[in-house]
């Protein structure tokens, strides 16, 4: 059963110029994005800067209003509602079902509120009586591995990893169906990163959460995700079950991303050639396949024809004209 179905999602930012604010162009931050997240599943959304992964995440959270497309969300079994056209007011009762974990554990906690109040805020806002709030806060602190006294302290007393736990506790307060985690471990030290990844895995097992996990590289994603969607310049270029994506990537960009992760093996140096060039500018993407200027497999057709995402094996989608010809 799907908790989230995103179809045709686009977010364009106009480029305006001059006194009259005339639109002279558009940044297609996200362009015709389609994916689903099943109940209890983690979908990783991976890509480099400017690929649109954060835009997609914020559209799903409706921190931004998409330009086009549908975001069909199921707040309870058997119910679906399209979030895309809803007004701020109409969204408010639905917000409790989709929560976010932020990248920056420092900026995401109000420095003027005690930890207990930060975690309790979702409860207050959604009218949970004070008597139950206290018990729930203690329960949540325990769930994320923080001592009960933490509620009486201010965020500045905590390390980055502890703050991230506080952010997770806040996100879980209302028993959401879907968690959107925006690079939740990329600002943390390696040893702390591992703790938070494990915590997310445990919580998902315990609570049956669905999760959209946004990441900029393929390192941690391997551990947390069931399926991976790779984005490049506003579009999804490949979607596949995690194991399959790592074993048999069917898009040259996915291959490049995999090759670019520095391997922790001194004997495996120089194995892969770094991809040429740099990430394309989403305001001015290359014609045809946006990756073709960097692609070692590009042919003339790639320069003019934009490949659509197509299923090349069961559950494995790739937006590459030569998807089936790539060496494995």
């Amino acid at each position: 059963m799907n908790v989230l179905e995103v179809s045709g999602l686009s977010k364009h930012y106009p480029i305006v110029a001059g006194l009259m604010r005339r639109e002279v162009g558009r940044v297609r931050a996200a362009d015709d994005v389609n994916f689903v997240i099943q109940k209890g599943e983690t979908l990783a959304l991976v890509g480099e800067s400017g690929c649109g992964k954060t835009t997609v995440a914020r559209c799903i959270l409706r921190a931004q209003r998409p330009t086009a497309g549908e975001i069909r969300f199921s707040p309870a079994d058997g119910e679906t509602i399209d979030l895309a056209p809803l007004s701020r007011r109409a969204l408010r009762p639905l917000r409790r079902h989709i929560q976010m974990i932020f990248q920056d554990p420092y900026a995401s906690l109000n420095p003027r509120m005690m930890v207990g109040d930060i975690i309790a805020e979702p409860l207050v806002v959604n009218g949970i009586p004070a008597a139950q709030r206290q018990a729930r806060v203690l329960e949540l602190l325990d769930l994320v591995g923080l001592p009960a006294v933490a509620r009486l302290r201010f965020p500045h007393a905590f390390s980055g990893g502890q703050r991230q736990r506080i952010g997770i506790a806040r996100a879980l307060a209302l028993n959401p169906r879907l968690i959107v985690a925006d690079e939740p471990v990329s600002a943390l030290d390696v040893s702390v990163q591992a703790q938070i990844v494990n915590l997310l895995l445990d919580l998902q097992d315990q609570l049956g959460l669905s999760m959209l996990f946004v990441a900029h590289d393929l390192g941690v994603v391997r551990h947390v995700s069931d399926r991976v969607a790779v984005m490049y310049v506003g579009r999804i270029v490949e979607v596949a079950p995690t194991v399959e994506l790592y074993a048999t990537p069917r898009h040259p960009y996915t291959r490049a991303l995999l090759a670019a992760v520095p391997k922790s093996d001194p004997d495996a140096r120089d194995a892969a050639e770094a991809p040429r060039g740099e990430v394309a500018d989403p305001a001015n993407p290359p014609p045809g396949c946006a990756f073709h200027p960097r692609c070692p497999f590009a042919i003339d057709r790639c320069r003019v024809e934009r490949p659509e995402l197509a299923e090349i094996a069961p559950g494995h989608f790739s937006a590459c004209l030569r998807a089936t010809e790539l060496p494995v």
Partner: peptide, 27 residues
């Protein structure tokens, strides 16, 4: 040893937990 174990592994099994070091770097 702990640092090397906590590095994400590109060949990990799905949902494989990472080895951790307890606590955090002290201030």
């Amino acid at each position: 040893k702990a640092l090397l174990r906590s590095v994400p592994d590109l060949d990990a099994k799905p949902r494989q937990r990472l080895a951790t070091i307890g606590g955090a770097v002290p201030q």
